[in-house]
Computed example of a mutant assay.
Amino acid sequence: MSRSDRNDGNSRTVLSALGNKYSAEILCAAGTPKSAQTLSEDIEIPIATCYRRIEELVDAGLLTCEGRRLSEEGRRTNIYRRTLDEIEIDFGGETPCVSQKRRTEAKNRLQDQFQG
């Protein structure tokens, strides 16, 4: 069962991260674990831009580093996956309120089995 999180203190950080170009595309592409290089290639954006967006998304708690893997070139690279499946922004109050439907570890493991 997924839980929804409401964290008004984090709303500005989340909105700021989502407001940047390519952030939503990175989150969509990171449903399965991927390196920054793979995300950059999948979305067709410069690698430096991809790293900046990844850092912002990690800081906002929307993306997480799941560990490291060897790249095809033999380098250790970080692997990222989004931490949520849904996000809702409510502009009805004095300040925006962000609700997030977090991904569960069970869902990640099940998805990994079907992807692998």
Rank of each mutant, 00 (worst) to 15 (best):
S2I: 09
S2E: 08
S2D: 06
N7R: 04
N7V: 02
G9E: 15
G9H: 15
G9C: 02
R12I: 11
R12P: 15
R12S: 15
T13Y: 06
L15A: 06
L15Y: 04
S16W: 01
A17S: 08
L18P: 02
L18I: 04
G19D: 11
Y22W: 05
S23V: 04
A24H: 06
E25V: 05
E25A: 14
I26Q: 03
C28P: 01
C28E: 03
A29P: 03
A30R: 04
P33Q: 11
P33F: 09
S35T: 08
S35Y: 01
A36Y: 01
Q37V: 06
Q37L: 10
S40H: 15
D42A: 05
D42T: 05
D42V: 00
I45K: 02
I45L: 05
I45Y: 04
P46F: 05
I47V: 13
A48G: 11
I54H: 14
E56I: 02
E56M: 09
L57S: 02
G61F: 10
T64I: 09
R68D: 10
R69W: 12
L70H: 06
L70R: 00
S71D: 09
E72H: 07
E72K: 10
R75K: 11
R75W: 10
R76T: 14
N78I: 03
I79D: 12
I79M: 15
R81Y: 08
L84N: 04
D85A: 14
D85S: 15
E86V: 07
E86M: 05
I87E: 02
E88D: 07
E88K: 00
I89E: 02
I89S: 00
D90W: 00
G93A: 15
E94M: 12
E94Y: 13
E94N: 13
T95H: 08
T95K: 08
P96H: 01
V98Y: 00
S99D: 09
S99K: 13
S99Q: 11
Q100H: 09
Q100G: 01
Q100R: 04
K101Q: 07
K101P: 05
R102E: 14
R102S: 04
R103A: 14
T104E: 07
T104R: 06
E105V: 13
A106R: 06
K107I: 11
N108C: 09
Q111H: 09
D112H: 06
Q113R: 11
F114Y: 14
F114P: 01
F114N: 11
F114V: 13
F114T: 07
